[in-house]
Amino acid sequence: MASWQWFHRLGSPRWFYEKTGGWLPWLTAVALVLLVLGTVWGLAFSPEDFKQGNSYRIIYIHVPAAFLALAGYYIMAVCGAVGLIWRMKLAFMVMKSAAPIGAGLTFVSLVTGAIWGKPTWGTWWAWDARITSMLILFFLYLGIMALQSAFQNREAADKASAILALVGTVNIPIIYKSVDWWYTLHQPATLKLTSAPTIHASMLYPLLTMVVAFYVFYAVVLLLYTRHEILRRESRTGWVRELIAKEGGL
């Protein structure tokens, strides 16, 4: 089964650490270039919205953060499933690293949404369907982080939070649909989002650039967190000791 060899190799934290060490500078460079390009393009060169004025420009942060907050949950849950099924240590390390990043991005999207809401809707907080769903996603992340940190035994912590992440995965579509239904039922008509359903190309391209930039940025942060987790967990193994001796640290 030669085609599966990469998969088994991926399970080795050492192989992962050494491989990603080479990718990291490139990914960081790409993320920085895209972030600067998207930010400058979006904030300075894309046209003003005729209804919302300049305040709409926060979507260049808000929308990519919200995308990744949700995608991050699924990345975390898939890693948890891989760890449970193939007993892959590395998958649990990625899963543990993905939780705080996802929670951070969810928080960013909530805060930027509130800042956007003040000039647009005239209020910092509204129980809008998407805001409420995001808030509950934030709670799900917090629960996983709390469960992970509550266990003394690392293996139990990994497996328990993986099970919780999978239970959450089943629940997320149900929660989203329920909150949608709940929102349409109560119909607070005064707080309608005013932007048109279609977005002009001059605004869309910088937004897409930012979405890609956030994905690359997410990958960089996830790699950094995971590499840190690998070093912490493998600190007693030979290769980490050699690495420390070579780098001259500690």
């Binding site: 509950i136 629960g143 239970v167 629940n171 329920s178």
Partner: peptide, 8 residues
């Protein structure tokens, strides 16, 4: 951990 799951 359970409260968010009770939302629906």
């Amino acid at each position: 951990i359970v409260m968010p799951l009770y939302v629906p």
